[in-house]
Structures are given as structure tokens and as C-alpha cells.
Simulated assay, not measured.
Amino acid sequence: MRAKVETVRIDGLPVRLHTLAPAGRVRDDLAPTVVLVHGIGMSHRSFRRTQRALAATHRTVSVDMPGFGGLPGAGRPLQVEELADIVVRAARSRGAGPLVLVGQSMGTQIVAEAARRHVDDVESVVLVGPVVVPGRRSALLQGIDLARDCLTEGVRMNTVVLTDYFRSVPQYLRELGPMLRHRLEDTMPHVGQPVLVVRGTRDPIGRRDWAARLAAAAPRGAFVELPGPHHVQEHQPVAFARLVGEFQRVQTLEGLR
């Protein structure tokens, strides 16, 4: 399978969309579209294996946000709420919907805000390695946790992390403040859609008690752990895709009752 790659502009800001779907169904109104949203400093490459696994059964769109993945930056900080609007509008501009939003790291903040702000467009959300753990809201502590995670990610994922970070430094520095200030724990009680929180068992960034607390704070939350580090979705792409698929089936059955 080869992704269809498009760059759209939302309020003048570039967003790159990588669409992959079963049997080439890049436009499909019959089923939810799974939208994959990367974390700070990263790009669609942090979901490369995950997207291929999910695309066996779902229409998928992996996003490169402004200033990341080689795209020009915004020249200013983009608040989490603004990024949430950008992701939904970019996906909807290509006919995607309803949306299942999957966010990793800072992407969890973005998809949670998107669900809160776009109730009619977002069907459910999946948070992978959520940030930022209270008590660790500083660049220094986040850097320490990131360094610890690099010890377990492996050569392939560390290569993706380092090269993505290198080409996104200007926007990364702008987004660090909004990420550290955003309080995901305050958003979760206002997300009425089903929420699945997924954590890698060896993740030093999205810690277990914190992840479980977020799931409990959501009106319709669930918490699952998979073996692996912060980017557990890439270490366990098939298991993760099955988990997302099962989560969707359960929500569908509940909706039919």
C-alpha cells in the first residue's frame, strides 16, 4: 500500500495528510476515519508501522502539523486548542468523517481538545503515552524523561525521533510552552466521547498512575497497557491496531443498544 500525500492550508498554515486505506478507499463515508496525530518534534513517521496495520481495516490519515515533518513553521506558538481545530479542519477538508482521533504524546492533548471542541465530528479518541505528568511540567524534567525513553526505544525509533527533532527545532521550541502549560487532566472530564488511554509498560514519560487517572477522569474512559516504551504503537503496531479495532467494535455495539 502506498499513501496518498496531500498538503492543505488551514488559515494559511500548511498541514500534510498521508491517507492510507484498504482497497484504495481513500474517500469513504461509510466508516470512521482514523486520524493519527504526532507529538511535539515528531511527524507522521512516528505512526508509519501503526498506520499500515490500521489501514488493513480502516481508512487512515496521518498528519504532519505546521513546522513539523519538514513543513514550514507558523512563526509563532500554536496553542493546543488551535492545533486541535487545525487537525479536524484539515481532515474534514478531504471528506474524512466521522473521526477517530489517535494522539501520541503531545498529540494526546491535541486530540482530547479536538474531541471537546468538535463533538459532532469526533466519534472517539485514543491517547497513547499522554503528557504532561503533573509535577514534571518543566523542559528539564521532560528532557530527562525523554533521554530515559531513548534507552528503550531501539535504533529504528531513536533514528526517527532524532531526525524529526532536528528538522523541527524552531517550531519545537515554540510549542514547548503550550505543551507544558496544557492540563490534560482538566480537559478529560469534558470529553463525552469514548476515550481509550494506552500506555507502554516501560514508558517513563506517560506514567502509569497518570494514564490510569486520565482514563478514570473521562466520563467514558478505558485504560490498557501494552509491552513497550513511549512509542508503544510502533513497537506493537499489530496489537495496537487490533486494540483500536476492538475499541471501535465495542462502541458500535453499545450504540446499537
Rank of each mutant, 00 (worst) to 15 (best):
residue 4 K to T: 14
residue 10 I to S: 02
residue 10 I to V: 15
residue 12 G to C: 09
residue 14 P to I: 02
residue 15 V to G: 04
residue 18 H to P: 03
residue 21 A to Q: 07
residue 25 R to M: 08
residue 26 V to D: 10
residue 28 D to S: 02
residue 29 D to W: 11
residue 30 L to C: 05
residue 32 P to W: 01
residue 32 P to G: 04
residue 33 T to E: 03
residue 34 V to F: 08
residue 35 V to D: 03
residue 38 H to Y: 13
residue 38 H to R: 12
residue 39 G to C: 12
residue 40 I to D: 04
residue 45 R to D: 09
residue 47 F to L: 08
residue 49 R to K: 15
residue 49 R to V: 03
residue 49 R to C: 10
residue 51 Q to Y: 08
residue 53 A to N: 00
residue 53 A to P: 02
residue 61 V to L: 12
residue 65 M to G: 05
residue 65 M to F: 00
residue 66 P to Q: 08
residue 72 P to M: 11
residue 75 G to L: 11
residue 78 L to F: 12
residue 80 V to C: 01
residue 81 E to V: 07
residue 86 I to S: 04
residue 89 R to C: 02
residue 89 R to N: 02
residue 90 A to K: 01
residue 90 A to V: 02
residue 91 A to C: 06
residue 91 A to V: 01
residue 93 S to Q: 05
residue 94 R to T: 06
residue 96 A to C: 13
residue 98 P to N: 05
residue 101 L to T: 10
residue 103 G to Q: 04
residue 105 S to N: 11
residue 110 I to E: 01
residue 110 I to F: 05
residue 111 V to Y: 00
residue 112 A to F: 09
residue 113 E to F: 01
residue 114 A to G: 05
residue 116 R to S: 02
residue 118 H to Q: 01
residue 120 D to N: 12
residue 120 D to I: 00
residue 122 V to Q: 06
residue 123 E to F: 09
residue 124 S to P: 00
residue 125 V to H: 03
residue 125 V to Y: 03
residue 129 G to C: 11
residue 132 V to F: 07
residue 137 R to W: 05
residue 139 A to K: 07
residue 140 L to Q: 12
residue 141 L to Q: 13
residue 143 G to P: 02
residue 143 G to D: 05
residue 146 L to Y: 14
residue 149 D to Y: 08
residue 150 C to W: 07
residue 152 T to K: 14
residue 156 R to F: 04
residue 156 R to A: 15
residue 157 M to T: 14
residue 157 M to P: 00
residue 161 V to L: 15
residue 165 Y to A: 14
residue 166 F to K: 13
residue 166 F to T: 11
residue 167 R to I: 07
residue 169 V to Y: 00
residue 170 P to Y: 06
residue 171 Q to P: 05
residue 172 Y to M: 13
residue 173 L to E: 13
residue 173 L to T: 14
residue 175 E to M: 14
residue 177 G to H: 12
residue 181 R to H: 12
residue 185 E to T: 09
residue 187 T to N: 05
residue 187 T to D: 10
residue 188 M to Q: 03
residue 188 M to K: 06
residue 190 H to E: 13
residue 192 G to D: 13
residue 194 P to N: 05
residue 204 P to A: 07
residue 206 G to R: 11
residue 207 R to M: 12
residue 209 D to L: 15
residue 211 A to E: 04
residue 216 A to G: 06
residue 219 P to K: 12
residue 221 G to Y: 06
residue 223 F to W: 11
residue 223 F to N: 03
residue 225 E to P: 10
residue 226 L to E: 07
residue 229 P to A: 15
residue 233 Q to R: 10
residue 235 H to P: 00
residue 242 R to M: 10
residue 245 G to M: 06
residue 246 E to R: 14
residue 246 E to Q: 13
residue 252 T to C: 02
residue 253 L to F: 01
residue 255 G to Q: 11
residue 257 R to S: 13
